[in-house]
């Protein structure tokens, strides 16, 4: 009796050990496979990108079909302007909306609904946002423009800023708010000068993440800012920008265009990774203090 029990115990024990071993090995294999695939992508990007990286990339404009050389100066400037303007739009808007969600949002049903819609907009297909902006800002005017591009990117950035601001404000201890209220400060002063100031680095994190998110967005710019072969700082006209240049050049048959596309891809990825790392540094500071 005890013998049989013991034997079944050890058999059970062994099969459990086996299942454990198989499961954990598979999970380790998954980690390895995932990392290998992603490192492969980064390796390809870096080796092709650095090969394309030289000074003419920053000093020349995008070349005409069939002509030699060229750079992406116009696209870099265009991207900076489009992204810059959309940061100027989305930061105040997103921060104030985030304040509303965190300071007034607990009791109101609309705020709850807004919060959920914002979360959904975070992952909404960006190409549809491009279509929308085309319908309201390009079709009525009759031409593509840098402004329309900024508007489309703002629609993507606002939810990011909003939700991070809200989350960061919620991390501010309630006693800080109460102390300010006890001194007789009105609510708006408490929100803007006490809570928001305490959550400053967290809010910066949100803005940086938003910039990282929109600087690589291609689809919405395709219908709004389009592209411009020449150097232009006129935001009322079509504007060159890195993502659309990558899209058009990578699909082209010209070897020098493809090389420029790799260079642009490397620039964008490095920017995005750098912004993400910066955001993390800011966030860590916040948690420490």
């Amino acid at each position: 009796m005890t013998m049989i029990q013991k034997m079944s115990d050890t058999a059970l024990y062994r099969s459990r050990q086996r299942a454990n071993l198989i499961g954990l090995t598979l999970s380790m294999f998954a980690m390895f496979l995932g990392l290998a695939a992603l490192l492969w992508i980064l390796f390809v990007l870096f080796s092709n990108g650095f090969a394309a990286l030289d000074i003419t990339l920053f000093t020349n404009d995008t070349p005409a079909p069939g002509s030699e050389g060229g750079g992406i100066r116009n696209a870099i400037v265009g991207s900076l302007m489009i992204v810059g303007l959309s940061v100027l739009i989305s930061t105040p808007l997103g921060v104030l909306a985030g304040i509303y969600l965190s300071e007034y949002g607990d009791t109101s049903k609309t705020a709850e609904f807004t919060r959920n819609v914002t979360d959904i907009m975070l992952s909404a297909p960006s190409i549809v946002l491009g279509l929308f902006v085309y319908a309201i800002a390009v079709a009525p005017v009759g031409h593509f423009s840098g402004y329309a591009g900024s508007l489309a990117l703002s629609l993507i950035a606002i939810p990011v800023v909003m939700r991070t601001t809200e989350n960061m404000l919620r991390l501010v201890p309630g006693s800080l708010r109460e102390a300010a209220f006890a001194l007789g400060a009105p609510r708006w002063k408490v929100s803007l000068m006490v809570t928001l100031r305490a959550a400053k680095s967290g809010v910066i994190t949100g803005v940086l993440l938003a910039v990282a998110r929109i600087s690589g967005e291609t689809a919405p710019l395709l219908f709004t800012a389009l592209n411009n072969q020449f150097f232009s700082t006129n935001m009322e006209a079509p504007m060159a920008n890195l993502p659309v240049v990558i899209f058009q050049f990578a699909m082209s048959p010209y070897q020098n265009w493809i090389q420029l596309a790799w260079g642009a891809a490397l620039l964008i990825t490095l920017t995005v990774l750098l912004l993400n790392i910066l955001a993390r540094v800011f966030f860590r500071e916040k948690v420490k203090s």
Partner: peptide, 13 residues
């Protein structure tokens, strides 16, 4: 956080 266009280029080339 890597932009999706990078995945597209990697896929094509």
């Amino acid at each position: 956080a890597v932009p999706s266009i990078i995945y597209g280029m990697f896929g094509l080339f």
